[in-house]
């Protein structure tokens, strides 16, 4: 897995090396140019990634394994970790559309269930209470304008904002 990650990162670094050069004007005698610093970093990264790949291959040879040994995609897709990653990603992506209140409530319920809470009514009540507390603290007391969402979700958020006493 590490070898694949390093290889992908190294290829990306090579691409970035040429990309940043193409985007920036050439350096002058008193100005190093926009590409200078990123290119130094990229060159060092490529060298270190190659070293890492060689080290990993050596270690693998000694243990008589192969690159595909550590890969268990089937197991990963069925794992709690994968579901957790999906939930976090969906929560982050949906926030701009559905707004903070529904997003937070649904995430708390779904992740709580994933973490082993099987008493659904309790989970829902607890999630509702936590959402309300977070909303009152941050939107109300600290005046942080939490995401409202769009369309009906925006109307829903505006309705709650009117209810706040602050």
């Amino acid at each position: 897995m590490d070898i694949i990650f390093s290889l992908i990162l190294a290829i990306f670094c090579v691409y970035c090396f040429f990309l940043v050069g193409a985007e920036s004007p050439a350096a002058t005698s008193t100005e190093l140019g926009a590409a200078f610093w990123p290119r130094i970093i990229l060159v060092l990264m490529i060298i270190l990634l190659v070293v890492n790949i060689v080290n990993s291959l050596k270690a693998q040879k000694e243990s008589k394994g192969s690159i595909m040994d550590e890969l268990n995609l089937g197991g990963f897709f069925r794992s709690r970790l994968f579901v957790g990653i999906i939930l976090v990603a969906v929560m982050a992506l949906l926030m701009s559309t559905v707004g903070f209140i529904p997003d937070c409530l649904l995430f708390l319920i779904a992740y709580g269930f994933l973490l082993g809470e099987k008493r659904i009514p309790l989970l829902v009540v607890r999630s509702l209470a936590i959402t309300a507390i977070l909303y009152v603290i941050f939107q109300g007391a600290l005046d942080i304008m939490l995401a409202r969402g769009v369309g009906p979700f925006r109307e829903f958020a505006l309705f709650f904002e009117m209810l706040l006493p602050f």
Partner: peptide, 26 residues
């Protein structure tokens, strides 16, 4: 099962509050 999701939501609020931008949450 309660604390874990709350930590993620607090993290999301913390990221969002910086610029009021959901891009930061992503």
């Amino acid at each position: 099962s309660v604390l874990g999701p709350v930590i993620v939501m607090l993290a999301a609020i913390g990221a969002y509050a910086l610029n009021n931008n959901t891009g930061d949450v992503v």
